[in-house]
């Protein structure tokens, strides 16, 4: 299991407006493209110096491909990264201010302390 790689997906997609839109419209294709082309990039190195070993397991890939943010919480993805990206993806679909954020909280309401470990 790679919480680090989940976080890397959330981090790199969230900061790129074009990728945010791609992930909203075509989540599975975007996750597959990202895992093939982006997952092994070391962000401070050029592409000839990429890593060789990073990949999602099936559960992680499916959670990202289905926009399943409650599952990402359960898997220990960093909650700030998940929240920020999914606000960008879904907030626009809610008429009320904070409508999506409250729905997000409701969908996690079965969790009690301690929450899943987020250490990477």
């Amino acid at each position: 299991m790679s919480k680090y790689l989940l976080n890397k997906f959330l981090f790199t997609v969230d900061r790129d407006p074009e990728l945010v839109e791609r992930y909203r419209e075509e989540p599975r294709a975007t996750v597959e493209w990202w895992e093939a082309e982006y997952a092994n990039r070391i962000l401070g190195c050029h592409t000839g110096e990429s890593s060789t070993w990073l990949r999602f397991d099936d559960t992680e890939r499916e959670a990202l491909a289905t926009h399943d943010y409650p599952k990402l919480f359960e898997l220990g993805a960093h909650p700030f990264l998940t929240l920020t990206l999914f606000i960008a993806v879904f907030e626009r679909d809610y008429a009320e201010p904070l409508g999506f954020q409250l729905e997000y909280a409701r969908r996690l309401s079965h969790h009690s302390l301690p929450y899943p470990d987020i250490a990477t």
Partner: peptide
């Protein structure tokens, strides 16, 4: 709380 069940109360 950010990204958890107690957020935005």
């Amino acid at each position: 709380e950010l990204g958890g069940p107690r957020q935005f109360g």
